[in-house]
Structures are given as structure tokens and as C-alpha cells.
Nucleic acid binder design. Structure first.
Lengths: 227, 227
DNA sequence: CAATTATTGTCGGCTACCTGACAATTGTTT
DNA sequence: AAACAATTGTCAGGTAGCCGACAATAATTG
């Protein structure tokens, strides 16, 4: 059972506290999705929000040539998703896909808004959450503009490691079984480039492969790729 | 006097309504900044938010080699700024610089939060605002990943035109007097590339220069650059 | 368990775009 | 008006990373 990096829960505005989760659970329905399932799609009406209980979800758009572009980051257990579009407008602009087997609490927009007006400190929490995501998105833009591909890949690995990595002897294991194609979509490059760079990182012993999982051995070395 | 595209005010979540602005004005102080002035800087304590009354502001970060990277879009009159960082954490992560002469209403965090709890529908407005910005940032990421430089420049011109362009006979004039360097920072490319592309656009009569201002003559042609 | 599909590894050519360098023009200061 | 600074225009390398193609594994399916 992957135990979350505990210091990230307290004070992390992205993750709901146990009480907050409880409030959401009370007005929602729990649902399971198998790996690979699409949870919502672009152009659908955004009439519900989700709380992730178990598993990971990727938020992506489709480019004109059909490639998946991960515009948000990966959403972890304890996070909400589908928030921005539900709070704001009518329609989804992106897709949400289950990276692993996922358990979600689904809450209808109407019920969610009612909760927000009653527990009105929650409205502030939502604002904080969106603010934190904003910052993340801005950081992403910054990286895309300033770093080249090796740096972006190194950064991605480090970020994923921090977010949902499992500390082990001699490194941090990333249990998400991302394909190189998925990784490429997250940092704006091609599959081939990801393959070759990961092998470069492996050769210099920054990372190691365990089956299809990646283990970060030397974060320092990865950092040095970030130009 | 640049009159805002009226249909963008109603229903545009980025721009405050007249009543909302009035509420903000009542608890804030009006200040003027000359063109070029830095309004806030990275690492400062984020203890205030701003309402833009007149002029335009760019939100940017500095890359390690000193280039300005515009991570948010340009902020227009009627918009708030400095919101995300004030709502969320302690410190600014980016800079705000006056593109033109600017008039702002400055509101202290404490007072702003008090307003939010009293006029609690305003908290929802803030959430909506941040949600809209999120979407914008995600669109930016998508563009950076999927479009090449000519497409990104075309898109930028079209977006600026829509946001703060002034419809004229035979086109839309962009009154912001952006330098090619500034434009480069907004789409992640170099100054030289911007210069040469703008001239390409001029040659095909998609745009025209009026002094240092740009006028969009043929949006269709610009769209066709977006691969 | 074989058969099929998905994922990874590798390589050569190609091109979009960056880098640096310098001249021409425009804007600003004294 | 002269002097200076900032912005724009242009051009010749150089290169990071894309594209296509194919082989080698690994994972799924019937």
C-alpha cells in the first residue's frame, strides 16, 4: 500500500484534510474505474467534481494530430479534480484518464455549490486550491520556455518522485507505470527522445528501471541536467 | 481613450462588474505607476491584491539567464492581479510590470479577506476568476507543446487583438507598444525570430505596422499559420 | 501457449529555430 | 542638435530534437 509522503498532506493546499474529505464523501457517491478508463472527456458538460480516493489520474488534451498533451499534472489521492471547469464555465476542455485503478467520489455541481455556501470556509479552500494549481501551471509554462528536453524530463521525474514516490532503500520508487509516450506528452517531446534520455539517465546511474517502474537513485545528478 | 470590447465585459469572469469594482475601490487605495515600473517582484510577501483601473500589466518570471518569461497573460483594465499568490501562500513567484501608464487600486490582504467573508458571493467570483485563469494557463501549455513558433505568434496576436484590440476601419489595432523582445518572452522564442516572423506576416498583409503599433488586417491568414 | 498488440531501443537524415554579430533605424536624454 | 540608448532588420552558421523506419522486447489476448 503506497503511503503518502506525510509532510505533503499537512499544509499542502492541493490535498484535502480528512474532515474536508468527509464532507465531500457525505454528499457524493463512490465509484471505481479500471486502469485506462476515461473519466470525463472534452466538450462534456462539467456538472460534477471528483475527489480521488485511490489511484492516479492524468489530465490531458488532445492535439490536432491525436497526441495526448498532459496540461495539468497528475492528480494524486486526496486531490480534487474537474474543479476549474465546474466552478467556471459549462464545458470540459480536457480529458481525465485513469492511470491506474481508481476510486473516486463523484459530487454533482449543485450539491457541491450548496456545500460551498454552507461550509463557506470551503469556498476559500477551493480558491486556494485553484491558486496553487495556477502556480503549478505557470511553473510548467516557465519550464517549457526555459529548459530544454533533458532538463524537463529530469524535472518531471523529480516532481513525480516528490509527489507520489515511495522512499525505499537507496532511492525513491515511482510506482506509476507510465509509458514513454505518456511521459513525452507531459514534457512536450517525442517518445523516442524520452526513451533515449531515460537510458542516458540510467547509464549515469541517476535512475534505474525495475520492470516498468522507475527508481530515482541520485536526485542531485538529475538536478544537474536542469539548465 | 481605448473602449473595451463591450461583449467581453458581460459574462467574462476575468473582468469585474461595476458593482464589484466599487466594493474593491471602497476598501483600497488608488495608485499610479509610470510605464516600465515594477509593481511587485518575486520573493516579496504577497500581502495585497490589485484591481487594474487603467493601463496594462505583464506578469512574468525571470529565467536563470535573465530573460523575461511571461507566464500569465497580459492583465487588462477591470481585471484583478496578484490574486493567486495572495490567496494561497506567502510569497510572490513572479513579477508584475507596467506595460503602459497604469492606475491601480491596492487592497491589503486582510481587508480583502474580510470583504470576501462579508460579500461571500465574491469568494465564488474569486474562485471563478482563478478557474478561468487556470484554463488560460493550460491552453498556454497546450500551445507551447503543440504549435511551432509561427503558430504561437499568430495565436498571440489574435488573442491580444480580441482582448485589448480596438476595432477600426479595415482591422483591429493593438495599442500596446510591445517590443519584439517582450513578445518573444510571451511565446518562448527569440527576439530575432519574432522580428523576422512579424515581417513575414506583414509581407503577406495579415498585419501592418503603424509606428510601433500593430494592426491585424486578416485574422484568417493568421489562423492558417496555426499548425 | 501461441498469436497479436503494445512498448521500448536505436539510428540517419532533416529542419526549425537558436546564437552571435553587426548595421540601420528609432527613441530619449542632455 | 548632438549623443546615446533602445529597438529593429538581416544573415550565416550550428544544433537540439523531430521524423520515419525497423528490430527487439514485453505485455495481453484468445
Amino acid at each position: 500500500m503506497p503511503e503518502q509522503n506525510q509532510d505533503l498532506v499537512e499544509g499542502n493546499p492541493l490535498i484535502l484534510s480528512e474532515q474536508e474529505k468527509e464532507l465531500v464523501r457525505r454528499i457524493g457517491t463512490t465509484v471505481n474505474y479500471p486502469k485506462g478508463q476515461i473519466i470525463f472527456a472534452a466538450d462534456e458538460v462539467a456538472d460534477r467534481v471528483y475527489l480521488i480516493e485511490k489511484g492516479w489520474v492524468k489530465i490531458y488534451r488532445l492535439s490536432s494530430d491525436g497526441r495526448e498533451v498532459t496540461v495539468g499534472s497528475i492528480r494524486n489521492p486526496g486531490e480534487m479534480m474537474g474543479l476549474a471547469e465546474t466552478v467556471y464555465h459549462g464545458k470540459r476542455t480536457c480529458f481525465a484518464g485513469a492511470i491506474s485503478r481508481v476510486t473516486l467520489v463523484v459530487v454533482l455541481k449543485k450539491d457541491f455549490f450548496e456545500l460551498l455556501t454552507h461550509e463557506h470556509y470551503l469556498a476559500l479552500k477551493v480558491a486556494k486550491l485553484l491558486a496553487a494549481r495556477m502556480r503549478e501551471a505557470e511553473a510548467m509554462v516557465h519550464e517549457l520556455v526555459c529548459c530544454q528536453v533533458p532538463g524537463r524530463l529530469a524535472l518531471l521525474l523529480l516532481k513525480i518522485g516528490e509527489r507520489c514516490g515511495i522512499p525505499e532503500d537507496e532511492g525513491v520508487k515511482i510506482e506509476l507505470r507510465l509509458t514513454h509516450e505518456e511521459i513525452a506528452g507531459m514534457i512536450g517531446t517525442t517518445r523516442q527522445t524520452v526513451t533515449s534520455l531515460l537510458n542516458t539517465f540510467k547509464r549515469e546511474k541517476s535512475i534505474e528501471f525495475q520492470g516498468r517502474e522507475i527508481k530515482i537513485l541520485d536526485p542531485e545528478k538529475l538536478v544537474s541536467w536542469i539548465v
